[in-house]
Simulated scan of single mutants.
Amino acid sequence: MPVGLIPVLLPFLLLLSPLVALYSIARGARLTAWRLFVRGGAPVPVHDPQVARLKTLRTWAAVAVSIAVVAALGSLRDLDQHLTEHWATLLLTPWLLIASGPVVLGVLIWLAPPTRRATMRAALRGPLRQLGLFFGTLALIPALFYGLDLLNPSHVGGNLGTLLILACVVAGMWSVFLFLFASATVARTGFGTAAVHPATPALLTSVLVWEIAAIGGLPNGPPVLAYVLLVGGPATVTALSCWEISRLRSRYGVRLRG
């Protein structure tokens, strides 16, 4: 870079440096969440590329429909409300999984032949481990702020106090990002419950979308369109889950009673 450009680019570099630092913190938290809940979890017993592609297509179709509805009927306030609901759903999904997962897993274990039940119960160790890690990512946030209160770096003074405050702020931001990425990851993997039964993620997904629809209520817009959006999203997800379970039975020999 020519030396003469440095004074010109310096204000832009100073402006971008906080964004670069924030991206680095978020990226580190995302990699940690991936190591804890994906690479460190149990491998998925069955991976169907066609089902995976259709799930991706359905996700992008849902995003496109949401954008089209907001653009056609909504305002900036509606857009803000839509984004708020999206974040609320992200944070709510793991807790719905924690509430609904034991019921679905209990039914699957009860339906299984007696010779399979012990193996399925033993496979619960993986999901329970991920559940403990998830609670750990949540507990890390108040623990860091409590540690900051005990340390009270502002009383140290000087450069050391400034560095301690900066380190605590960075650690707090990293812990928040870690919890958000952990929430998104366990919502996608279902705490690794596929290790207990390959059909568990599909069943959990079907239960969750109807629970979220019931909690969220009617979307904004004309009544007919609102009911179509309310029922259409969960219905398409349920149909896709039924197709996934059907393919597990026909192509891989996986049955709900097995």
Score class of each variant (00 low, 15 high):
88 A>P: 04
59 T>A: 12
75 S>V: 12
102 P>C: 05
55 K>T: 06
71 A>R: 13
80 D>A: 15
79 L>E: 05
83 L>H: 05
65 V>Q: 13
64 A>I: 14
81 Q>H: 13
102 P>Y: 03
62 A>W: 04
79 L>K: 06
69 V>A: 12
95 W>P: 01
70 V>P: 03
75 S>H: 04
79 L>Q: 08
93 T>G: 04
103 V>W: 12
58 R>T: 07
84 T>Q: 08
93 T>A: 12
104 V>I: 07
58 R>D: 04
78 D>I: 06
102 P>S: 06
56 T>K: 05
97 L>A: 08
93 T>I: 10
105 L>T: 05
64 A>L: 06
67 I>V: 15
78 D>P: 08
68 A>P: 00
58 R>F: 15
89 T>W: 02
66 S>M: 08
82 H>Y: 10
61 A>G: 14
66 S>K: 06
81 Q>F: 15
82 H>S: 14
81 Q>E: 14
85 E>I: 01
99 A>G: 08
69 V>P: 09
58 R>Q: 03
90 L>E: 08
101 G>W: 02
56 T>L: 05
93 T>L: 06
101 G>E: 04
93 T>P: 02
77 R>I: 13
67 I>H: 09
79 L>M: 03
89 T>G: 00
71 A>Q: 13
101 G>L: 03
79 L>V: 15
85 E>Q: 00
72 A>H: 10
102 P>Q: 06
94 P>I: 01
68 A>M: 09
57 L>M: 11
88 A>R: 01
88 A>Q: 03
72 A>Q: 08
62 A>T: 09
106 G>A: 10
58 R>L: 15
82 H>T: 03
75 S>W: 13
104 V>M: 09
55 K>N: 02
90 L>R: 10
55 K>C: 03
90 L>W: 11
55 K>W: 00
62 A>G: 14
69 V>I: 15
66 S>T: 09
98 I>H: 01
71 A>V: 08
69 V>Q: 06
74 G>T: 07
82 H>G: 02
60 W>G: 11
70 V>A: 05
79 L>T: 04
58 R>V: 03
73 L>T: 14
70 V>H: 07
69 V>M: 11
83 L>N: 04
93 T>R: 06
77 R>S: 02
92 L>P: 02
76 L>R: 13
75 S>F: 10
76 L>Y: 00
68 A>I: 14
102 P>D: 00
101 G>Q: 03
63 V>Q: 09
100 S>I: 15
57 L>P: 02
99 A>H: 07
103 V>E: 08
87 W>F: 03
78 D>T: 01
